[in-house]
Design a protein around this nucleic acid. Sequence first.
DNA 1: TGATATGTTATCTT
DNA 2: CAAGATAACATATC
Length: 267
Amino acid sequence: MPELPEVETISRQLHQALKGQKIIKVTILSAKNFVGNPQEVVGQRIIAVERRAKMIWFKLANNLTLAVHLKLTGQLILGQGQPGKYTRVFIDLGSGQKLFFNDVRKFGWMKVIKNRELAKMNLDFGLEPFDKTFTSDYLKKVFSRTSKPVKLVLLDQTKIAGIGNIYANEALFAAGIAPSRPAKGLSNKEIKKLRAEILKVLQAAIKYKGTSDRDEAYRQIDGAKGQFQNFLQVYRRQGQKCPRCGGMIKRIALGGRGTFFCSYCQK
DNA sequence: TGATATGTTATCTT
DNA sequence: CAAGATAACATATC
């Protein structure tokens, strides 16, 4: 699924490829996946492409931003060809290339947003893990206020932006903390460790350009898979041996989501 | 056929 | 009232 490392990868690649380019034409094939007036972005130059939480922001010259959320199965592919079966929107660029927004399940969206509304939208999200304000003191404060399972707090975008199911599971494994532990019950030492492991796993996943699990949707902008699926320790590995202690990896549901952990070495 | 997958939000419940 | 729990969204795959 596109989480922080996947969206960051796409966002960096698009910035590289599209900075300075002009949007020539917007073709909407599925109306529900495009919000706003496409004419407002036509003719505009792309100043920068940035990531915020799990969104990609195309900052345009006219103080508008084209925001994209890939949700579960969205892709942004840069190419020369024709739209595919699951292309919902595509954008013709000055270079002659096309940017295809593909999305099997149609949960994702593109939205035209005024920059001053963007600032308001920003307030709905928690801290970016790589922001220097994301300290263990901050985590401690967040955790102390709830007895929800710690994994659900990691997934709460209003507290921390960008972590999804894969990296919540992996970070808790790396920190040796059971996902169902009530957040307020974690010790200072555990919180410190968890913060460090969150940063480590996100950094490693960015290095390997994200996780393309099975035939899942995530792709880099040239259509290539990421490689971090080869480094997953627990995610979707139920029934297999724990790479750390040799115990059995279990699967439970937390908040209706698959949760994977080693019941021997995650305390 | 039914279970499973999942990010986010709407809605129901406590 | 707020926090927490759960359903809904759409569709493919096992």
